[in-house]
Computed example of a mutant assay.
Amino acid sequence: MPRLLTYNVHRCVGTDKRLDVDRIVAVIGQHEPDVVCLQELDVGRLRTGKVDQAEAIAEGLAMTSRFHPAMRVEAELYGDAILT
């Protein structure tokens, strides 16, 4: 049976107010999931350095991502992703 993990990453900003995509990758990687459902990702948003967080996390885990924007502000996106 595939291992599923869901995670609200809060745009990769921790309770310590630090933006750290690599920390998210490390936490997910500890669980070795087959499928990951992520909520509250920024893609191309100025507030998080214009990083495609879905793709960065997927790359760090050697997975592929499917991003779905829930909100669009000009070229900036905010939403959810599934990684496999």
Results as ranks from 00 to 15, higher is better:
residue 74 E to M: 14
residue 16 D to F: 07
residue 37 C to T: 06
residue 4 L to R: 04
residue 44 G to H: 04
residue 10 H to L: 14
residue 35 V to F: 07
residue 41 L to W: 01
residue 82 I to F: 07
residue 45 R to C: 11
residue 60 G to Y: 01
residue 64 T to M: 08
residue 51 V to H: 05
residue 50 K to G: 07
residue 3 R to I: 14
residue 56 A to I: 04
residue 12 C to Y: 13
residue 77 L to D: 03
residue 34 D to N: 10
residue 76 E to P: 04
residue 8 N to P: 07
residue 45 R to N: 10
residue 46 L to N: 10
residue 38 L to Q: 00
residue 56 A to K: 06
residue 74 E to T: 12
residue 49 G to H: 01
residue 31 H to C: 11
residue 27 V to Q: 11
residue 43 V to P: 09
residue 10 H to M: 11
residue 10 H to I: 05
residue 42 D to W: 00
residue 53 Q to T: 06
residue 72 R to K: 11
residue 59 E to P: 04
residue 84 T to Q: 13
residue 13 V to L: 14
residue 40 E to V: 01
residue 35 V to G: 02
residue 9 V to Q: 08
residue 43 V to Q: 08
residue 2 P to S: 09
residue 18 R to Y: 13
residue 82 I to Q: 09
residue 8 N to Y: 04
residue 11 R to Y: 15
residue 38 L to M: 04
residue 70 A to Y: 01
residue 64 T to F: 02
residue 28 I to N: 03
residue 84 T to K: 12
residue 3 R to C: 10
residue 63 M to G: 00
residue 66 R to H: 09
residue 71 M to N: 12
residue 41 L to M: 07
residue 47 R to W: 02
residue 18 R to L: 12
residue 53 Q to F: 03
residue 67 F to M: 11
residue 46 L to T: 14
residue 62 A to V: 08
residue 34 D to G: 01
residue 80 D to Q: 12
residue 32 E to L: 11
residue 30 Q to A: 15
residue 40 E to K: 00
residue 21 V to R: 09
residue 23 R to V: 04
residue 63 M to N: 02
residue 34 D to I: 01
residue 29 G to V: 08
residue 56 A to N: 06
residue 53 Q to K: 00
residue 1 M to F: 15
residue 67 F to P: 05
residue 20 D to E: 09
residue 73 V to P: 04
residue 37 C to A: 15
residue 56 A to G: 01
residue 69 P to H: 02
residue 20 D to Y: 11
residue 47 R to H: 02
residue 56 A to Q: 09
residue 48 T to Q: 04
residue 18 R to V: 13
residue 6 T to N: 06
residue 80 D to A: 14
residue 59 E to V: 07
residue 47 R to M: 04
residue 72 R to N: 09
residue 43 V to C: 06
residue 5 L to G: 06
residue 23 R to Q: 14
residue 64 T to Q: 12
residue 56 A to D: 07
residue 29 G to R: 13
residue 10 H to G: 12
residue 36 V to P: 01
residue 73 V to S: 10
residue 25 V to H: 07
residue 65 S to F: 01
residue 50 K to W: 08
residue 27 V to I: 14
residue 31 H to R: 13
residue 31 H to T: 15
residue 36 V to G: 00
residue 15 T to I: 09
residue 1 M to P: 15
residue 37 C to D: 05
residue 54 A to C: 08
residue 13 V to G: 09
residue 1 M to I: 13
residue 31 H to Y: 11
residue 56 A to T: 05
